[in-house]
Design a protein around this nucleic acid. Structure first.
Lengths: 335, 335
DNA sequence: AATTTGAGTTTTATCGTTAAATTCTACAAA
DNA sequence: TTTGTAGAATTTAACGATAAAACTCAAATT
């Protein structure tokens, strides 16, 4: 167990017979050091297997090359794709990523935020549904920490964000459902506390009205984005005698639960009941019934989120930007 | 855009009319400061909304409270569960987590490792299959960076690890398959470069021999852990006239691909062909054919991995520990 | 010869915090 | 009165890197 202290520029300086500053300059290509000395220093640095101390550098430069990510649950299927985009994008620009999960618990969120602040992250990616409202964002703004919101467009003026167009997504899926079959349509949307859910609902409503229908709360069962919620909503619906029609679900997990309940009731998908999801999570093409769904550009949202953040670093006074990406309707066997 | 410099202990000291040291002591509960002064300092810290600078603290204390995680792909279904365990465990002990993906590219791994070293992580969790052999681990050891390997037990003496028992897992699944049907059994194992794959194969072989069979490489098609590989292996197998039997796959993704190929050949699962997976990834109960598989305690492996790392922090001379967890056979409809 | 120039290099100070040693009080004991 | 001591606080010096200013010395200019 070699316990040798790590090599510092001072060690190199001593061995090369120069000042620490000279070493620093050479290693960061600042120029002003003779070819000869440079080569000597580089050789010694290599020989000693020198690695710079980012901590010290961060302290001095007041910049950590770190991006914080606050997520609701990093293992959740949609988010893990976003995260991959975030990581790839950050890594391409020499940034590292710290992640904290909130599991939707406000204290966790508060704590995560403080940790990030204490660690002096250069910027923050906020990808948690955020029930905690704007106060945290205000604090970040006050501290001058650039922040980008993911998957949460409307409602927050003056904050950079990248999201998919939930309104159009909602519109298109309902438009598709009603165009392909004149049907009794029901909704299992995301619970109303989620802004994404609300936007999709607005899309649903407009599509309904363009098809001469209207939104009726009695045909709506709000769900948390879980298989269980989808399952029980569908089970209840079947019990009320619903045997033929279409169910438009707020996300793929809800749809998966719904499919299970339909199958247990011995009804056929899509002949009896059609079901649509939203997100296009991994494996949704391999489910018991491959899912018709609205694909969100998850990876790209993460990737662009970081790009926007970096743009903001370089241009703090740029007016706030809302990037809205397009979804893609994926038609499979469930409709 | 408030651009106020962040509050430091000096600011507090000045306002309280004491030295910076007094503030430091109070804020870190070191004692030696009068009740009265303490209260004054705390009040001012609160008023100014002081947040400590972890960077400075890390530099001084030579300890970052950061754990590095090197993964192959953080969005991959098995890993994202492990990661959640890692994060929860780390967070419970006041550590943060930095993640880097290698995507199995050696240069990425090298780079990730250097980044981690430069950032002076306190310890490393290595969860990438690691084709790059031991040299990196040697370096870490030399630098005195405690390291825990996940999902990769055998072969590396003297390094802490947490993994599931691939040997028993492999044994049990084949034992189950052969006990339930006397069948033509084929294998789509993980490619041989993965140590987990090798251990499982050893288990397969022993189970075969306990059932009076033997391992025949002509019944084996090595696969990368992807749906595509499973699909093409199965498609080829069907083309050779394989119409009845059992296919034991090295992971769930391979199995999912295999199922697809079987279905396209209009063969029935499990009546004609039985298929088993390994891992029990999310949604494997909701697939077109719910998958019989070996559930690995993914979350727990991550969670315990961090615990082991922290144990190592406190006791650097503890002899190396290999934690091996038990899998659980999950029987569903595919067999 | 005196002065300027500038490449090459060193010195100094700083980022924010904290370990360790030191000073300063006030008060008790000898 | 002197000495001792415990508590409260301060001073100093790091941690490792780097920005900015200062210095050095040989070659070029006046």
């Amino acid at each position: 167990m070699t316990n040798s202290k790590r090599v510092t520029i001072k060690d190199i300086a001593k061995e090369a017979g120069v000042s620490a500053m000279a070493v620093s300059r050479v290693l960061s290509n600042k120029g002003g050091i003779s070819q000869e000395t440079s080569e000597r220093i580089l050789a010694i640095a290599k020989k000693l297997n020198y690695r710079p101390n980012s901590i010290a550098r961060s302290l001095r430069k007041q910049r950590t090359k770190t991006i914080g990510v606050i997520a609701s649950d990093s293992s959740e299927l949609v988010f893990s794709q976003i995260l991959r985009g975030v990581q790839d994008s950050a890594s391409a620009e020499g940034y590292d990523v710290i992640i904290a999960n909130t599991y939707q618990i406000p204290e966790n969120e508060k704590h995560a935020l403080n940790t990030m602040i204490d660690r002096r992250i250069d910027g923050l990616i906020f990808a948690a549904p955020m029930r905690t409202g704007k106060s945290d964002l205000e604090e970040l703004k006050h501290l001058g920490i650039p922040t980008v919101l993911l998957m949460r467009s409307g409602g927050l003026v003056g904050i950079d964000s990248v999201s998919a167009d939930n309104y159009i997504g909602g519109y298109e899926i309902v438009d598709y459902l009603l165009s392909t079959r004149d049907d009794d349509i029901r909704f299992f949307p995301l619970s109303q506390s989620r802004s994404t859910g609300l936007e999709r609902i607005a899309g649903y409503q407009n599509a309904l009205s363009d098809h001469g229908r209207n939104w009726n709360e009695r045909r709506v069962y709000y769900c948390e984005p879980t298989i269980n919620d989808g399952y029980s909503a569908m089970a209840k619906l079947v019990q009320t005698g619903f045997k033929h029609g279409t169910v438009c679900c707020g996300c793929d997990l809800i749809a998966i639960g719904a499919i299970k309940a339909v199958q247990e009731a011995n009804l056929k998908i899509p002949e009896d009941i059609r079901i649509s999801g939203y997100d296009d999570i991994e494996l949704s093409d391999y489910l018991s019934v491959p899912l018709t769904t609205m694909r969100q550009p998850k990876y790209d949202i993460g990737y662009e989120g970081v790009r926007l953040l970096l743009e903001r670093f370089n241009n703090p006074d740029m007016c706030s930007k809302q990037i809205v990406m397009r979804n893609e309707l994926i038609i499979r066997k469930s409709t």
